[in-house]
Design a protein around this nucleic acid. Structure first.
Length: 485
DNA sequence: TTTTGAGTTGTTCGA
DNA sequence: GTCGAACAACTCAAA
């Protein structure tokens, strides 16, 4: 009789290397790799279209890699607990291994599942593959979760510096096949990548573990040295573009850390750049930390004072923002990059988010929902924490009076307008000096560029100076009642 | 317990 | 054109 199988439940860890649950499953016995499409568990935070499309290709890549090792990926859908118990019944598996997820629903679900499995005498063990440090790993001196990034980062950075990074398990070379494979859903039946979403990925990024590794290596060779300055330039390929891979665990933060730290050690001139990059990994950790300790983060203002904020109901403005038709070129370029590629440069995310929240005074949750649907790297913690950061309602957030000026930001970070030209082609023929504010262009310049404002490119839907003043007034009004106490 | 220093990413205004 | 200050208080983290 064949030894009982260990179920390896893939979740947001779609890789074979640096996968402690896989290593444990393999040590236990024959491995049954399974992925469960758990929409039923996720409530309102079912993954959006862009991420589902990425997931489709990532699962195919994972199955391919498993088959190259003599195994395969079994696909099931439904509530995870039902799917897992059914698989145990079908195969006689006596163990389940997984790497932890930290969204509130996942924590609750996995805890309940573990208790249930243990009661049935099934081994259930979980591991950390997704974070440098887990949310319960450390707290501030007072015992509270960190709420400010810098002390959080000092503590995390200091610990890794002192203790080093635990070694990552390697990808197994072979994974023995089961004598009988349980049924698997055909992936096409899941319709994760409908035709109109296909192909819309950022150039240079490829789904799957191998794609993530290639991207990391290329980034370190090509862009790490200049990261500190070039990371802010949407017109350059200066970022790692690893966010979609990190979001699904095609690569883990420890792998990224180790590779970047090794590059910095080999070339000491890069250590400053490497530190600034590692800091961004730190922000990812911080966001996870915040969500874990404040599960309401995607729904409620972290600063309760913002519950009294007066958001405008502006469907037309929201639609113009979503469509990349605000009349502010850098905002429109970003929003169109998002629709077309499923990704937006970080600097432009801030500019576009600031525009929605401060220039239009639209509730940050509307922006959060749009990003959730359209980002291939959608991550509940990053998305919620970052929108609240921009809105000013979040932990360690931008001060309310910090309102991005889309013209100045465009001139500063896209100085030649190359980024705008790529995504807003109707402006491509405007000279560099006018491309971030076409409404100020002389009539002959517009004519020469083939632009008729209001016809083939919109006039600004709000006047930024007036919108800024309105935003500051709205924030003052929010604070006002407290001042009278 | 109290105190002290500090806090990702900006903009505008006036000297 | 450049520079520093104001913008607003508040809460967190650590001593």
């Amino acid at each position: 009789m064949a030894p009982p199988a260990a179920l390896l439940w893939f979740r947001q860890d779609l890789r074979l290397a640096d996968n402690p649950a896989l290593a444990a499953a393999r040590a236990h016995g024959t491995v049954l790799p399974v992925y469960i499409l758990d929409d039923a568990d996720r409530g309102p935070w079912r993954w959006g279209a862009a991420k589902r499309a990425w997931l489709h290709h990532s699962l195919r890549a994972l199955d391919h890699a498993l088959r190259a090792r003599g195994s395969r990926l079994v696909l099931r859908r439904g509530p995870a607990q039902t799917a897992i118990e059914r698989l145990i019944g079908e195969t006689g598996a006596n163990a389940v291994f997984w790497n932890r997820c930290y969204e509130p629903f996942a924590v609750a679900r996995d805890e309940a599942l573990k208790a249930r499995l243990v009661a049935r005498r099934v081994v259930a063990r979980s591991f950390n593959a997704g974070l440098l440090a887990e949310p319960w790993d450390f707290a501030s001196g007072g015992g509270n979760p960190y709420a400010i990034f810098t002390p959080f980062w000092k503590a995390l950075r200091g610990r890794i510096g002192a203790e080093g990074m635990p070694a990552s398990p390697r990808a197994p070379e072979r994974l023995p096949a089961l004598p009988d494979w349980p049924d698997s859903d055909p992936i096409d039946a899941w319709a994760l990548a409908p035709r109109d979403a296909a192909g819309g990925f950022p150039p240079g990024a490829a789904p799957g573990e191998a794609g993530a590794q290639a991207r990391l290596g290329g980034f370190i060779d090509r862009a790490l040295g200049a990261y500190a300055s070039m990371r802010d330039r949407p017109d350059r390929d200066g970022t790692s573009l690893l966010s979609p891979s990190l979001a699904l665990g095609e690569i883990g933060p420890r792998q990224v850390w180790q590779a970047v730290a090794a590059a910095a050690a080999a070339q000491p001139g890069q250590s400053g750049a490497a530190e600034s990059f590692l800091r961004e990994l730190g922000w990812r950790e911080f966001c996870q930390h915040l969500l874990f300790h404040f599960p309401e983060l995607p729904r409620r203002n972290w600063h309760a004072a913002f519950d009294a904020f007066f958001w405008r109901d502006d469907p037309a403005g929201l639609k113009a923002w979503q469509d990349g038709m605000t009349g502010y070129p850098v905002v429109d370029a970003g929003m169109r990059q998002l629709r077309r590629t499923g990704w937006m440069h970080n600097r432009v995310r801030m500019i576009a988010a600031s525009f929605l929240v401060k220039d239009l005074l639209v509730d940050w949750r509307h922006g959060q929902a749009w990003f959730w649907e359209h980002l291939v790297d959608a991550d509940l913690a990053n998305n919620a924490a970052s929108w609240q950061w921009v809105a000013g309602s979040g932990a360690d957030a931008a001060p309310y009076f910090r309102v991005f000026n889309p013209v100045l930001q465009g001139r500063k970070f896209d100085p030649r307008g190359d980024y705008v030209r790529r995504f807003v082609p109707e402006l491509a023929r405007l000279p560099d000096g006018l491309i971030h504010e076409p409404w100020t262009a002389p009539a002959e310049a517009l004519e020469a560029a083939g632009i008729v404002l209001g016809r083939n490119y919109p006039r600004p839907i709000v006047d930024h100076a007036a919108a800024r003043a309105r935003a500051l007034a709205a924030y003052r009004a929010m604070r006002g009642p407290r001042a009278e106490d």
